[in-house]
Amino acid sequence: MKQILIFLLATFSLSAQIKGVVLDSISGKPIAYVNIWVENENIGTTSEENGVFSLDIKEEKNIIFSALGYETKTIKSTEIKQVYLKSIVYEMEEIVLETPKKTKEFKVGNYESSGFRWHLNYNFNAIYFESNEETEKHPYLKEIKFHTISKLKNSKIRIRIVECNTDLSLGTDIIDEPILVDIKKGSKKNVEDVSNLKIKIPENGFFIVFEKLLIKENKFCLERKYKNSSKVKSTIKSCSYEPNLAYIPSEQNNVLYANNTLNWTKQDKVKLDKPKSYENLLMRKYHDKYLVPSIEITLTN
C-alpha cells in the first residue's frame, strides 16, 4: 500500500501545474506580461499583470523567461516559485535629440479591411520594413494601423519595435517600453499613434512585432454539445487566446512567425489543390501568395 501511495504521489507531481510569480530582482515588484515557454517546445504562457503565471507540464523541463528590458533567464521547472529577472543595463552613448518636423508623411505596407479567409495560429508575428530613400526622407515612425479579429469583448496585444540585423534577423528593441493596445470584439481596424516615442528608423530597417499575450483576459473558451453515433450526449470545450491578426495575400515574403521569441520561421507560399475550382472561389486570391498581416505604417519627417 505504501509503494502504491508513493507511485501515485510521484505521478501527480509529474503532471501537476507549476505556479509562480516573476519579480524584478532589485525592486521586488511583479513583472507583467513576461513571455514564458518550455525550452525547445511550443508550450508557453504569459505572466499576468501581477506577475503570476501557471504552466502545465508532465515532467521536469527547462523553462525560459523573457521580458522587455530584462535579461533572459532559464530555470528548471522543479525550482520555480519566485523567479527574479535582472534588468538590462545599457551603456550610455552620446545622445543627439532630434524633434520630428511632422510636415510630410509617407505610408507603407499592405492594409485591407475585409474579406479575410485565412488564419495562422502563431503567437508572434514580425513584419520587416526596409530602409530606403523614402525612409531617409521620412525617418520617424508616426502611426501603426493594423487589423484584428477577436471573439472577446476586450483583449490586449503587445507591439514591439525591433532593429533588423544585417542578416535580416531580429536584433535589439529600439524602445525599452512595451506598446499595449486594447482590442475590441469582431473584425476591427486599430490605429496606434506612436509619434510621442520619436522612433527613428535604423539604417538596416526594422521589424514591427505583434505578441499575443497568453493571459486570462485574452482567453476565450467555447462549449459545444453533440451526440455521437450511439446518441450519447457529450460536451467539447475548446479554448483559444485572442486577438488574432487578419492576414492578406502578398507577393512579398517579409514576415517572420514564431510561438516563442527564439525560433523564428518564414512561411511558404499558399498552394491550393484546385485554385480555379468553384469550391475555392473565395480562397483563390491566396493561391501562390504569401500570408502577411494587414498592416500599414505612417512615417514622417
Rank of each mutant, 00 (worst) to 15 (best):
K107L: 08
S294W: 00
K102T: 09
L180K: 14
S230I: 06
I26T: 07
I175M: 02
G171R: 10
W37Q: 02
N125W: 07
L9S: 14
I175S: 06
N254R: 07
I179P: 03
W118R: 15
Y84Q: 13
V22E: 00
E279Q: 11
V232E: 15
N218K: 14
Q3Y: 12
V194Y: 02
I88Q: 01
Y70W: 05
E49Q: 15
E217T: 07
K227V: 07
R117T: 06
S13G: 07
T265N: 11
S155V: 02
S114F: 08
T46P: 03
Y247Q: 06
K189P: 02
V270W: 08
L281C: 02
S27A: 07
I297M: 09
M1E: 14
N62S: 06
E211H: 01
I88S: 00
I6G: 04
S15M: 09
V22K: 12
K219S: 00
K81R: 13
I157K: 12
F124G: 00
I179F: 05
R224Y: 09
S229L: 13
I144C: 05
H138Y: 14
I31P: 03
S131I: 02
L120M: 10
K216S: 10
L68C: 01
K274L: 13
S54L: 10
K156L: 11
E192R: 08
D288W: 02
N254I: 09
L245D: 00
L85P: 01
S87H: 09
G171Y: 05
G69Y: 01
I157D: 03
A10H: 05
E279V: 13
E39M: 07
A246V: 06
R117K: 15
K102L: 14
S87R: 13
I18N: 08
K212Y: 06
R224F: 10
Q252E: 15
L282V: 04
N110P: 00
K151D: 14
E59Q: 13
K289S: 10
E91L: 10
L152A: 08
V270T: 15
N190I: 08
E112L: 12
K289E: 12
G51Y: 11
N40K: 15
Q267E: 15
I43M: 12
Y241M: 06
N218D: 04
G186N: 06
M1V: 09
K29F: 09
K102W: 05
N62L: 00
Y278N: 15
N110F: 00
V89N: 13
Y257W: 12
Q252S: 10
R117Q: 14
Y257R: 05
I75E: 04
S25V: 02
Q267T: 08
F207V: 03
S113I: 09
Q267P: 00
K58Q: 13
L168I: 10
A126V: 04
K212M: 03
E48F: 08
D173W: 02
S66M: 05
G69P: 01
N196W: 07
Y84A: 12
Y278I: 12
R117N: 15
A258D: 03
W264Q: 09
A246E: 05
I4G: 02
D182N: 15
T172F: 07
T172G: 08
F65A: 11
N260Q: 01
T46R: 11
T135C: 03
I297P: 04
G51A: 09
